Amino acid sequence: MDPSAEASGRVLSADGTPIAWQRQGEGPPLVVVDPVMVDRTTSGMAGVAELLAAGHTVYTYDRRGKGESGDGEQYTPESEVDDLLAVVETAGGTAALLGTSSGAVLALRAASESAVISSVIAVEPPLTEDSDEDPDIRPELDELLAAGDRAGAVRLFQESIGVPPEMIESSDTSPFEPAAHTISYDLTLLLETDVRSLTGIRVPVLVLASSGSDDRLREWARETAELLPEGSFQLLEGSWHGLDDRILATAVEAFLN
């Protein structure tokens, strides 16, 4: 990889919020959209981004309220879409998107609302047509954060999404605690995104799921792919809500090429 292709900077979103981004590699632009609570320094997508940089100009960025990016006065899903589109503009005006979990939902929303997205790879977007919604834990999160219990907020979220108890017990919450206040952002994004509103997406979408995830996550991914006009579904070998870097990178490369 040409070292001159590496760069970083900030771009202003539509509401003036500075969004920090980083670039590596050369080739067609691809923007990575991270899931809840992580920034570029804690992202589990860093290894995938490095692998994909062999054939793509890969942009990673800190979602608002995380890492080196700023935050707005009031969160809305529309503001997060604007942030992502600002990064796409930095990438040259059009790009493919690779999003995981809530980041996949954000990527799909951007593709449904803008014509500058060329394709989307969505890894286990937690979307469903089922009208029975999970309990809204945002008020309880607010109470924990007001009490300064960021670790408790992280664990509450993990429990609410079905992270296996043994994974919660063995996990270190400290890397996620700085962004614990943004958990409610992702929950708002999910609660205010109707999977049926995405049926207007007119670009190719690959929805991926892991063999190690529970039935609910896999079926949500499959259902989302079936609803999209140009959607396809692929089940890959992996762990709970996670895929090996090389397996994921290979699937992304095959889809984009």
Rank of each mutant, 00 (worst) to 15 (best):
E6W: 11
A7T: 02
S8P: 03
R10V: 02
R10H: 12
V11F: 06
V11G: 07
S13D: 09
W21R: 04
Q22S: 04
P28G: 09
L30W: 01
D34I: 06
V36C: 12
D39C: 10
T42P: 03
M45H: 07
V48E: 02
A54D: 13
A54Q: 15
G55H: 12
H56Q: 14
Y61H: 15
Y61A: 08
R63M: 08
G65V: 10
G70M: 07
D71L: 15
G72F: 02
T76C: 12
T76K: 13
E78A: 14
E78G: 15
D83M: 12
V87R: 01
T90A: 14
T94N: 11
A96T: 08
A96R: 15
L98T: 09
L98D: 07
G99T: 06
G99I: 07
S101E: 03
G103N: 11
V105R: 07
L106N: 06
R109F: 00
A111D: 05
E113S: 06
S114R: 01
S114E: 01
S114M: 05
S114Y: 06
V116C: 11
I117G: 10
S118P: 05
S118Y: 10
T128I: 02
S131V: 11
D132M: 09
E133I: 07
P135H: 05
D136R: 02
I137V: 08
L141E: 00
L145F: 04
A146T: 05
G148H: 12
G148A: 03
V154N: 11
V154F: 11
V154D: 13
Q158I: 00
I161F: 12
V163F: 00
V163A: 04
P165D: 10
E169V: 01
S170L: 15
D172N: 13
D172Q: 09
S174N: 12
P175W: 02
P178L: 05
A179Q: 14
D186R: 09
L189H: 08
T193A: 03
R196A: 10
T199F: 01
T199N: 02
G200A: 05
V203S: 13
V207H: 00
A209V: 07
S211V: 14
G212E: 10
D215N: 05
L217R: 15
E219Q: 15
W220P: 14
A225H: 13
E226T: 14
P229M: 01
E230Y: 05
F233R: 04
Q234L: 12
E237S: 04
H241F: 15
D245Y: 08
R246I: 08
I247S: 06
L248K: 09
F255A: 14
